[in-house]
Design a protein around this nucleic acid. Structure first.
Lengths: 170, 170
DNA sequence: TCTAATCAGTTCCAAAAAAGAACCGATAAG
DNA sequence: CTTATCGGTTCTTTTTTGGAACTGATTAGA
């Protein structure tokens, strides 16, 4: 498989990674969530080359994650804003940040705190089941092939399904 | 900023991306969560080059996300297994898959279903606040600089903080 | 015994992507 | 008239991938 075919894979993770799965995109989006909107501000903050930045922003606009919004005429200047689709990546960001806080932080602790406006407290994100509301960890989930699955290569059936009841640890 | 300096940034997202933020790593991890453990099986399923695969697996072992476990002697063969630290990336995977299900799926719907063992239902992941248990979306969160923050360049203060009460949409 | 197969890589070369710097075009400011 | 701002594009060099072949320890089969 080549990287460009990623968005045609029968796997939602692959398809999401086709949008955000390269070196700089998630950092661009982090800054979007921090309120950055303009080309030169992204550049200053990220230190990415202008070339790559322009490319990533274009891709994010194509996928509907960001939208270009004019903020002045003459000369026309546009800024990049998260769309609803982009805002929905927030839980991805929270999950990534939370893992980093737990496993990659130094002595000083988390660099950024998230305050939940609803309750006013400093929060961590917790992933729960949509059906019963209980927290969900890796071992609490079983995987099943759904309707969108198609076995293109004949070999993609996940080993854990093939193995059936073989649920030792992974 | 260069990619290699990413894990020294005062940002948990950067540091997480230093581990999982390149082109193939999250796909390798997806397969780990599906039960794949051996080099040649990763290769067959991902279609990544052996060169890159070897590199990514080595990095994941160095960061403690995977562990090499011998499964036979003579010749010595080792397989890759998720550590606890690796298993904790599950909520990242769920968040990415869920976004893909919502925004990148075709007519056939989600390729894979997640069954919550606790309640037996097909589930979606929901991100809630650790303090009050309410669901959290992007607009429900305010960001605050924490102890781990250090302003190396003098310019990294997030615009949303600088702007203070300027909470129009992002 | 000879040959092929398995598995987990490594090595080599060509192609693609990223880094770094300079340039461009419209406009405004001094 | 010159410089600055903003949002890019173009150019060259370096790094990373893609693709294929090779390695080394061992087992299986003819």
């Amino acid at each position: 498989m080549r990287w460009e075919e990623l968005d045609q894979q029968p796997c939602s993770l692959s398809r999401t990674l086709a949008v955000v799965g390269d070196r700089w995109t998630l950092l661009v989006l982090r800054d979007c969530f921090l309120g950055v909107r303009r080309f030169d501000e992204f550049e200053k903050r990220l230190g990415v080359t202008r070339h790559v930045l322009a490319d990533r922003l274009k891709k994010l606009v194509e996928y509907g994650v960001l939208a270009k919004v004019p903020y002045q005429q003459r000369p026309l200047r546009e800024e990049y804003r998260l769309t609803e689709r982009g805002l929905e990546l927030h839980s991805v960001m929270l999950a990534l940040v939370s893992w980093g806080d737990r496993h990659m932080a130094d002595e000083r602790g988390a660099p950024i705190r998230h305050i939940h406006k609803g309750c006013g407290q400093v929060m961590r994100p917790v992933t729960v089941c949509s059906e019963c509301g209980e927290p969900v960890a890796a071992r609490d989930v079983q995987i099943e092939v759904g309707d969108g699955w198609q076995d293109a290569t004949g070999e993609l059936i996940p080993p854990r399904l093939a193995r059936q009841a073989g649920n030792q640890d992974r």
